[in-house]
């Protein structure tokens, strides 16, 4: 069952550009926020609303790292491992996360709750080492803070991210 709200949102966003094709990224952001990740059906919808070949939409969805064509855990932990964070212990934090969650970077826990990703610079080096938990930045991390954060998340199965995704 297709969702009329998503269709309206995508059609509206397309009017901001000289050609609908330009709206493929905002449309994919909208579809991802709607479905949780970019399913084949979600990408087909985007293609239909923007009058693009499906392969074009797939091409864009797989080029950019913030688009997910596979399910992502309820809590997506994106640990920055670039230089400023590495200098302040990001590699140690990565090992800690992998051990505590029993997964490697790029994987999701069996219960579907946690996805761990090592990412490049998040543009927040003043609070290194830094990680994004869904949309929120968590900076000045150390082993203790990270352990506490994980414990809180594991104990509160219904905690929602503080803010929803932005509308564009």
């Amino acid at each position: 069952m297709k969702d009329q709200t998503l269709k309206q949102q995508i059609t509206e966003v397309a009017t901001r550009y000289p050609a609908p094709r330009s709206a493929v990224m905002p449309a994919l952001h909208l579809a991802q926020a709607h479905y949780g990740y970019l399913t084949q059906e979600a990408m087909a919808e985007v293609a239909e609303y923007l009058h693009l070949p499906r392969v074009t939409v797939l091409e864009i969805a797989t080029f950019y790292s913030l688009f997910h064509t596979r399910p992502v855990g309820k809590y997506h932990l994106q640990l920055c491992t670039n230089l400023s964070c590495m200098l302040l212990g990001a590699e140690r934090l990565q090992r800690q996360l992998e051990q505590q969650l029993h997964i490697r970077c790029g994987e999701t826990t069996a219960d579907g709750r946690f996805t761990l990703t090592a990412v490049e610079c998040l543009g927040a080096c003043e609070m290194a080492p830094v990680m994004q938990l869904n949309d929120d930045y968590c900076g000045h991390l150390n082993e203790q803070r990270l352990a506490e954060m994980l414990q809180t998340l594991q104990e509160e199965p219904n905690r929602k991210p503080e803010n929803g995704p932005p509308s564009s």
Partner: peptide, 12 residues
Amino acid sequence: LDIYLHRGAGAY
């Protein structure tokens, strides 16, 4: 003038 935001998706 109209100003629009275009949100990137993670590509240096």
